Simulated scan of single mutants.
Amino acid sequence: MARVMAINRSEKKGTIKTPIKEGRFLKNHGLQGDAHAGNWHRMVSLLAKESIDKMIAQGVKGLGPGKFAENITTEGIELHTLPIGTKLKIGETVQVVTQIGKECHSGCAIKQQVGECIMPKEGIFTKIIKEGVIRPGDPIEILK
């Protein structure tokens, strides 16, 4: 079963995010209190634990939720295979996939600290279309 492993937030862009107990996700905004939130197509970033595990298998130490600046760390779903436009019910929210991967900006703190960033290949971005609270353990459902 696909589920939320962690909710992560940071006050500055390009920095590692810190896990929080729950997140309030606002329509046309994203995660309340997060540096990346705003009314644009990349309101929320998601990365699968399975993607992080690939980096750990390559010998990168100290990785875990938020290290790649993702807002939501997931488990049990191959995020990067979801087509753009896919709707996801996560916790109380409904989100739509708007982008797969991204170009890392130069001087990215994550790349400097961990040596490589997996977000450009396997991270996804969503827009909030129904707001609500998300907590670790919440199920993730692909809506038809």
Rank of each mutant, 00 (worst) to 15 (best):
Q113C: 10
H29I: 00
T18E: 13
G30S: 05
H29N: 07
A48L: 02
K89T: 08
E11V: 15
L47S: 06
I56T: 12
T15E: 15
I118M: 09
K89N: 10
A57V: 02
I90C: 04
I84Y: 09
W40V: 03
Q95H: 12
A57D: 12
E11T: 14
M43T: 08
R24Y: 13
M55T: 04
K121Y: 13
V114G: 09
K102Q: 02
G107N: 06
C108K: 02
E103I: 14
K27S: 05
S51L: 10
N71W: 07
E92W: 11
D34E: 08
Q113W: 11
R9G: 01
C104Y: 00
Q99E: 12
Q112L: 15
Q32H: 13
W40Y: 05
K13P: 12
K21W: 03
C104P: 01
Q95C: 11
P19R: 05
E92F: 11
G33R: 06
E50F: 05
G85S: 09
K21I: 10
F125M: 02
G33V: 08
W40G: 09
K89P: 04
R24W: 11
Q99W: 06
T93S: 02
L79W: 08
N39C: 11
C117L: 09
G123C: 04
A109V: 09
N28A: 12
G76A: 08
P19T: 02
T126G: 00
E75R: 10
L79G: 03
S10V: 02
G91A: 07
G59Q: 02
K12P: 10
H41T: 14
P65V: 01
E116N: 14
F125P: 03
